[in-house]
Amino acid sequence: MNWFGLLLAIVTLFIIGSGFVWVIRGERYFGHPWWPYLMGLGFLLVLSSLFLASNWASALLGVFGASIIWGSTELKEQAIRAELGWYPSRAKKVQLPFADIIKKWKAPHL
């Protein structure tokens, strides 16, 4: 029996689950025009996982990166949910650098 995959999967479930929380909070404070930062960070983490010798460390970093990339594609829809009043919204958002430029780009959604 190889328990690696199942144990990794259980940790993955919690990492994905934490995504529900940080996407909601992240949108509340920063809005959605910071998705490229998240997407970039996610890809960087997945890339870094290639250079870790330990399977556990590599897998966890890969899962964490993938979860952040997915979260970056969820921000736009979360912004609409907040506008509709389905989630508490904060009128004053913290503007991250280049937010005005990013707003003109088409936000990804899958």
Partner: peptide
């Protein structure tokens, strides 16, 4: 180590 990429 491709384990992380596969998991991702």
């Amino acid at each position: 180590n491709f384990t992380g990429l596969t998991a991702a």
